[in-house]
Simulated assay, not measured.
Amino acid sequence: MRPRQFDLIAFDWDGTLFDSTAIIVRCIQAAVRDVGGRVPTDEEAAYVIGMGLMQALAHVAPDVPPDRHALLGERYRHHYFAHQHDISLFQGVLPLLHDLKARHHWLVVATGKSRRGLDEALRHVELHGLFDGSRTADETASKPHPLMLHQLMREFGVEPERTLMIGDTTHDLQMARNAGCASVGVSYGAHDPQGFAEYDPQFVAHSVQELHDWLRAHA
């Protein structure tokens, strides 16, 4: 068997493993509408996916005053938790993860979600046995700051050159670069992949199957 190139593989969640981009966009728009702000376009709302929630909402709704940010966050959570079970893993994600586990990679999640949100999602799709660790935006610095990856690498004793970050946004790829790690982008999530080149991903996958094939050959 070919030696592994990466010991630790970190996945973003929304838009990379979980088919949630459209619902997140609608929930952001509904929350901003609820507090009287200018409702962002689909593109504007999708851009902030991957950031920590409050950072994302402040960015996408600059006309909402800071004293209403807490309410804005509450309204987003209200809409999201009402629809979280309407969404699921992208087709092909489970075989991909099982294949990587069979090769004895450590698998972790590095996400802009909250701990509550990630745990709810993991319970819903019954993935607890597949991931060895995770970091959420309310536990550490938000993307693209590299602290999330630094903490995961320290936890597993893995060096940056043995770590791969996989994500659907420029925030994910910039975080990987900031942490000194390799990255792979996926084009089927929140961000236009034309913006990925600046961050030098090793590959851009246009489907889960393409991602699986690349990982099988290169990870």
Rank of each mutant, 00 (worst) to 15 (best):
V25M: 13
E43R: 05
A82F: 06
A58W: 00
L96Y: 02
G36F: 04
D42K: 07
R33N: 10
G92D: 04
V35M: 03
A30H: 10
L53A: 11
V108R: 10
V60W: 07
Y80R: 15
D119P: 00
M54K: 07
I28L: 11
V48P: 00
A70C: 02
T41V: 05
G50R: 14
H83I: 02
G52S: 03
A61F: 08
A110Y: 00
L118T: 02
G73V: 12
D34H: 03
R33I: 05
D34W: 01
L94A: 13
D99E: 13
D86N: 03
I49S: 02
D34M: 11
A56Y: 09
A110K: 05
S114G: 06
R115F: 01
A61W: 09
Y47K: 05
R38T: 13
A58V: 09
G112Y: 02
T111Q: 07
A30N: 14
D119W: 05
A31K: 12
P65S: 10
L118V: 02
S114T: 04
R38D: 06
A45S: 13
D63R: 13
P62G: 10
L71N: 01
Q29E: 08
H78N: 03
K101N: 03
L107I: 14
G36V: 13
D67E: 15
H83P: 09
E43A: 15
C27S: 14
L94C: 09
H69C: 07
Y47I: 13
L53D: 05
A110M: 01
H59T: 14
D67P: 05
T41Y: 03
F81T: 05
G112T: 09
Q55A: 11
H98T: 15
I28V: 14
H98F: 10
Q29H: 11
H78T: 04
I87E: 10
A30R: 09
H83Y: 12
L100P: 04
A31E: 06
P62Y: 14
C27D: 13
A70T: 08
